[in-house]
Structures are given as structure tokens and as C-alpha cells.
């Protein structure tokens, strides 16, 4: 009797799971496996696969001799560190300002602040090309107007600050998205706890630090995790503004892989690069989430 019921349960289980599993395997897992297989060949993306040679680990060996690969991965790391250092803090503080402020029209404020997040990256890139422009760009004009001429820069053309300038665009575009995640977290914090803290004599910032933040720690963990992954996925922003220049100063893995694959028609090498990129993201994300989970358990 029991085994009949179990069989039925199992069948129902597969009935529900199978459509999603098939789609997931076909659209996600198979391309990943295909990507891995191609990385061991010299396929140029044009020849039929039958004409393609297996080259073993040659693409991977070449990669570790390629200076631009090191530059690109370092820029991704740099971008990720900037992301982690600023985006969660900026989005959390904005969420606090919106949620705990005395402004009545909170809905309007939330919507207004969220606008950058819904703009397409192409549009944002064009917008900021003008903001940063050396010829009458908004930022340089403002600096001139406030007599800070010595601060005027070619923000996207100076190799020392180009990556940071791109990061500022990324911050402006993406922090509202994370702000909404924090907002939903803040709304779930019990007001009883915060009021108890205030009765016990805690100040505004003490309440946030000792009560609010620990309550939304899992959300902080998710936001930081997403921000790390974003740092390694950056592509369209760089491609639409600097194309990796000047002099590879903003070259990231995304732009490098794109160029190798589609300008050079070296799909084998490009897929090897993307495989390593995925592995780096997986390892960093794994380490982070492991650390985050253990610190959650400790606390």
C-alpha cells in the first residue's frame, strides 16, 4: 500500500519537475557543456564542427601567457571590490533614508530613486558619455562653474581614472535595485525590537547598527553576493563607453571574450576564457557564501 503511494508521489514529482528540468537542461546546462567542449578545440565559429581540430589544453596554456587576460581579470576584481565597498552601503543608506524619513510621499520617492535601474544600459552609457565629455560635458562644466578647474579631467580617456569613472556609472545605475531589496528587508524588521532598543537608550545609529542590521543580515549577504557576481559580469557598460580602452585600462573579461570570439573568430580561445571566468565567479561566490553562512550561524 505504502509503496504504491510512494510510486504515485514519485510520478507526480517527476510530472511537476520534468518540464522545468528539460528546459533548464536544454537552455542552460547543454550550452555550458558545449562551451566547455569547444574550449578544447580551435573552432572559429564559422567552419563546420567537423572541420574543427581538438587542440587539448592549448587554449588554456595560451591564456596564461596572455597579458591582456591578466589585465582583464584584474580589472574585474578591481571593479568587484569597488562594487562591494560602495553599492551595498549606498543602497542600504538610501533605503534607510527612504524608509525611516519623515517624508510623506515615500512611494513617489521610491519610484523616483528607482528610475536609473529601469533605464537600459545603452542609454545610460550614452548619457554618461555626455556627462563625462571633455568638450562641455556636464561634470567638467560644473567643475568649471564652481572654479574647480584643476579637477577637470578626461574621465573616460584618462587611464588612471577611467575604470573608476565606469564604476560610478555602475553605482548610479544599480544601487536603486539593491535599495529595493533592502527596503523589503527593512519593512520586515519588527518595530517592537527597534522601540525596545530606543527605550533601553539606544540612539538612532545604534538602533540601526545593533538591531536593524542584524535582523536583515541574510539580505545583506544576498546583496553582497549579487554585487560580486555583477562585478564579474560587467560587459555592456564597458562595451558602450570605452570598449576596454584607453590602452586596456578598462578591459574586462566580457569585452575581451567578445572581441576574441566575434572580431577574431577564435571561438575556441574565447570559450576557454569564458570557462575560466565562470570558474573564478563560482569559486569567489562559493567562498563568500560559505563564509557568510558560517558567520550567520556564529551570530
Amino acid at each position: 500500500m505504502k509503496s504504491g503511494r510512494r510510486k504515485k508521489q514519485l510520478r507526480n514529482f517527476w510530472l511537476f519537475v520534468l518540464p522545468a528540468l528539460v528546459l533548464y537542461t536544454a537552455l542552460w546546462m547543454l550550452p555550458l557543456v558545449f562551451n566547455l567542449v569547444i574550449s578544447f578545440t580551435n573552432w572559429n565559429g564559422i567552419n563546420p564542427l567537423s572541420m574543427t581540430k581538438i587542440v587539448g589544453l592549448r587554449n588554456y596554456i595560451n591564456m596564461f601567457r596572455d597579458n591582456i587576460f591578466y589585465k582583464s581579470i584584474f580589472h574585474n576584481l578591481e571593479f568587484t571590490v569597488l562594487n562591494v565597498a560602495f553599492i551595498p552601503a549606498a543602497s542600504f543608506l538610501t533605503a534607510i533614508a527612504v524608509e525611516k524619513s519623515f517624508i510623506r510621499k515615500k512611494g513617489f520617492l521610491r519610484t523616483t530613486l528607482f528610475i536609473p535601474a529601469i533605464l537600459p544600459m545603452l542609454l545610460v552609457s550614452i548619457l554618461f558619455r555626455w556627462v563625462y565629455s571633455v568638450d562641455g560635458g556636464m561634470l567638467n562644466s560644473i567643475l568649471e562653474a564652481v572654479h574647480l578647474d584643476s579637477w577637470q579631467r578626461n574621465f573616460l580617456g584618462d587611464y588612471r581614472i577611467a575604470l573608476f569613472s565606469l564604476f560610478v556609472i555602475n553605482l548610479w545605475k544599480n544601487y536603486p535595485f539593491y535599495m529595493t531589496i533592502f527596503l523589503s528587508g527593512l519593512q520586515s524588521v519588527s518595530t517592537d525590537l527597534e522601540e525596545s532598543a530606543k527605550i533601553d537608550g539606544a540612539g538612532y545609529w545604534q538602533t540601526i547598527w545593533y538591531v536593524t542590521l542584524p535582523c536583515i543580515k541574510p539580505i545583506v549577504g544576498v546583496v553582497v553576493g549579487l554585487v560580486i557576481i555583477d562585478g564579474f559580469r560587467v560587459f555592456d557598460l564597458v562595451f558602450n563607453t570605452t570598449k576596454g580602452g584607453p590602452a586596456y585600462a578598462t578591459e574586462v573579461m566580457g569585452t575581451l571574450i567578445y572581441r576574441i570570439a566575434f572580431s577574431d573568430s577564435r571561438l575556441g580561445y574565447a570559450t576557454a576564457l569564458s570557462t575560466v571566468n565562470v570558474l573564478v565567479v563560482l569559486v569567489i561566490s562559493f567562498i563568500y557564501f560559505k563564509w557568510n553562512r558560517s558567520s550567520e550561524v556564529d551570530s
Binding site: 558619455r129 565629455s133 573616460l156 580617456g157 580602452g245
Partner: peptide, 9 residues
């Protein structure tokens, strides 16, 4: 300064 220029610029 044209290090950051596109064709349109």
C-alpha cells in the same frame, strides 16, 4: 583629449 572620442564626437 580625443583619446575618449568616438567618430560622432
Amino acid at each position: 583629449s580625443c583619446i575618449s572620442y568616438t567618430e560622432d564626437d
